[in-house]
Amino acid sequence: MQNGIQDDEIVQLLWEREEEGIVQMQKKYQRYCSTIARRIVANEEDAEECINDTWLRAWNSIPPHQPENLAGYLAKIVRNLALSMYTKQHRKKRRGDIMSVALEELSDCLSDGREVSEEMEKKDLTDAIAAWLRGKSREQQAVFIRRYFYMMEIRELAEGLCMKENTVKSILFRMRKELKIYLEGEGIYL
């Protein structure tokens, strides 16, 4: 990070319950978090609400948590908040936006003809996906996570990684198929 204050200093301030920690966190990660939120919830006010909730959650969760990677920690909070908001708003009807397209794409990873294992621990699934991703190149990891975590558009993703859009699409297509096979191999059927 090139900002003046280091992440561990921010975390330390939060641990000491210093409000300056929030100020510094906002200063450093406002844009980063708002980009993530705005990709998922189109409405400006909703995005703002997600971001404000992110600071609050970070404040409430540090301590006891001591994130080793503050950027990733905040990204997870804001992304999951925005996702919940999106789900609430679009429970009945999906639009052709980035979220619904991403969800549609992820259906490639689902298994046919089996019941969803409700008792399956969410953590097991996350661990399996993380293990599978760790076996991929850094580039493949970046493509997959930028698409399905950061919800980046294909065009944006291709430009950011200096690739053709079709290359990105085919990487994602192959990865989704591989993930499905991997998860089934791990006994995880979705």
Binding site: E68, A71, K76, L83, K123, L125, A142, I145
Partner: peptide, 22 residues
Amino acid sequence: TGEEILLDAIGNLPEDMIAKAA
């Protein structure tokens, strides 16, 4: 449900992995 479970799981990937991808 399956798609959403997957999306949720991706949202809980390790923080270092998420930050490095960005």
